[in-house]
């Protein structure tokens, strides 16, 4: 067993973990934060996306012990049913989900994507690397690691655009 200290959603937690424990399983099985989902456990689907030290990652692809001392934000840290984060609210309003299983990962990714664009981080579809700006194609590209088999894609883009203040409606 290896001691691991994390700050999860602003709360300091001390865990004794089998070093094989993924960050995802540390959250789901040890901290009982089951909002973060296991869709594939192989970094293929994006359902396990969380925000670590301000950047989104696939929590299934990384061991918890590699994050000793780090800050983790999960879907539970963004908002609650009574006090939704603007992105969570936009997903409800635009029906940006169906079964709900990829949703926490989509939302964690979406929040990070807007930050990445603001920070000027370019993507594969950025035309001018000196001027990274919001566009639906930028968002589609950056969100493509989060699979939604129910395929609420069109609605998710509407939700993210709404939060970004770029709504067409």
């Amino acid at each position: 067993m290896t001691p691991v200290e994390l700050t999860v959603n602003g709360r300091e937690v001390h865990l004794q973990l089998d070093p094989r424990t993924s960050l995802l399983d540390a959250l789901r099985e040890h901290l009982k934060l089951t909002g973060t989902k296991k869709g594939c456990d192989h970094g293929q689907c994006g359902a396990c996306t969380v925000i670590v030290e301000g950047r989104r990652i696939n929590s299934c692809l990384t061991l918890a012990v590699m994050h000793d001392g780090e800050q983790v934000t999960t879907i539970e840290g963004l908002g609650t049913p009574e006090a939704l984060h603007p992105m969570q609210k936009a997903f409800v309003v635009h029906d940006g989900y169906q079964c709900g299983y990829c949703t926490p990962g989509q939302i964690c990714s979406a929040v990070s994507v807007l930050e990445e664009i603001k920070a000027g981080v370019p993507s594969h579809v950025t035309e001018n690397l000196d001027r990274v700006a919001f566009s639906e194609d930028e968002v589609r590209e950056r969100m493509s690691g989060n699979i939604c088999r129910c395929a609420a894609y069109s609605n998710i883009i509407a939700a993210i655009s709404d939060v970004a203040g770029e709504s067409k409606a």
Partner: peptide, 21 residues
């Protein structure tokens, strides 16, 4: 109508089968 199960789904508080601690 917005889905009535929406707030639970977008906050990760809807518990799926493997999550029933």
């Amino acid at each position: 109508h917005d889905r009535i199960d929406g707030p639970a789904k977008v906050t990760g508080t809807a518990a799926y089968a493997y999550e029933r601690h």
